[in-house]
Simulated assay, not measured.
Amino acid sequence: MDNIAGSKSGLTWAVHISVAFLVALWLFPTLGLLVSSFRTTDQISSSGWWKAMFPTEQTIQLRTGGTAEAVQQDGLYVVEGNLLTDEGGPGMGSKPVAFGVSSREIGAYEIGETAVYSDGDETLTIAEDGAYRYTSVEEPGRRGQRVFLTAVTPAQATLDNYKTILFSGSGQDNMAKAFFNTLTVTVPATIIPIVIAAFAAYALAWMDFPGRALLIALVVALLVVPLQLALIPLLRLHLGIGIGKGYLGVWLAHTAFGLPLAIYLLRNYMVGLPRDIIENAKVDGATDFQIFTKIILPLSFPALASFAIFQFLWTWNDLLVAKVFLIDATGSTTVMTNQIVELLGTRGGNWEILATAAFVSISVPLVVFFAMQRYLVRGLLAGSVK
């Protein structure tokens, strides 16, 4: 009875669990990048992104004022200030809970206590509002004394990372230029193969001419050609005709690598369209071009959208083809993937900058995927069921 058509399989629960696991596996890193892009360096180093909505306890190394801030009172040099608002402090919203004057005991004193340095000539007191009073028999040094402050910092977000990435002007931190460079590469590299493949797919699906079966077999064979195998010969060809150092070369490279799949998907979809519609149009005197533009293309929109999603994502996230065919010593045509690689070298320790750059890079593919995903399955299943 379990095999009766229309009855639910006993493994339905397993399918649901697997789908939920895959969705979570994909969603959590994306959500982590988004949250981390709004956090500071100290927040990222002190707690995971899943704790961003809760207050966190962190220890920060700060310095008291130095010679310039010291005043003499009753034979002592006195420096006063506020560790929460001074440079590098956690901010007024934070609550100090402990402090220390030695890296070996960073939380040795409670707030309100007076810390006495090892020589006995210096003291430090920190109040609950972050105000401190440092005293010394001798004149303090120019840089002041180290203080290790442990404070509870409330959840907070910052847009400074996006300002640095998008509006930092020239240089490797500026992702805005790389963003538009990536659009300049991706949009033509998506449109050109779709246009060519649509004409080729219609011819292979509905036009009779010698060698059609051989061309179809050749298209299927090209699907298994490794990208890396064709890079060097194609680059030598581009350099020989003078298009290997600009956008035109990378457009044609992406077009060449994307055409086999595009023709295969579109041809399978078009060949499954009702034959009566095409034959009636021919009886009414329509030409092949009129049939293609007014009947085939509107009906093939799911397959076109399906390939557009794949080609856009592949081109947007591409690094290898851009590295090989977009040769630019000045950086004026650098795409986002290459820019992120360069940031790993210059900003390798700034996780907040890297997370922001990564999320800016994936934001457009996310929008494209969710806007057109309803056509994805229909296009992939094109021609699989008769």
Rank of each mutant, 00 (worst) to 15 (best):
31 L>K: 03
32 G>W: 00
33 L>S: 03
35 V>S: 03
35 V>Y: 02
37 S>A: 11
39 R>A: 00
39 R>D: 00
40 T>G: 14
40 T>Y: 06
41 T>N: 06
42 D>A: 14
43 Q>S: 11
44 I>G: 06
46 S>H: 00
47 S>A: 13
47 S>E: 02
47 S>I: 02
47 S>T: 04
49 W>P: 07
56 T>H: 00
58 Q>S: 14
59 T>C: 15
60 I>F: 12
63 R>A: 12
63 R>Y: 13
64 T>W: 05
65 G>V: 04
66 G>K: 08
67 T>I: 06
67 T>D: 10
68 A>D: 10
68 A>H: 06
69 E>L: 14
70 A>I: 14
70 A>E: 09
72 Q>K: 11
72 Q>R: 11
72 Q>A: 13
73 Q>G: 07
75 G>N: 13
76 L>Q: 12
80 E>F: 04
81 G>Y: 04
81 G>P: 05
82 N>V: 12
83 L>F: 13
83 L>H: 08
84 L>C: 06
85 T>F: 02
85 T>V: 10
85 T>R: 00
85 T>I: 08
86 D>I: 12
88 G>S: 13
91 G>Y: 01
92 M>P: 10
92 M>V: 10
92 M>D: 15
96 P>H: 03
97 V>M: 13
97 V>R: 14
98 A>M: 13
98 A>F: 11
99 F>H: 06
99 F>L: 04
100 G>P: 11
103 S>Y: 12
104 R>D: 09
104 R>K: 09
104 R>Q: 11
105 E>A: 13
106 I>K: 12
106 I>P: 09
106 I>S: 08
108 A>L: 08
108 A>C: 01
109 Y>G: 00
110 E>Q: 10
111 I>W: 09
112 G>R: 12
113 E>T: 00
113 E>N: 04
115 A>C: 05
115 A>R: 01
116 V>R: 01
117 Y>E: 07
117 Y>D: 06
117 Y>S: 05
118 S>R: 04
120 G>A: 14
121 D>T: 15
122 E>K: 12
123 T>M: 08
124 L>M: 11
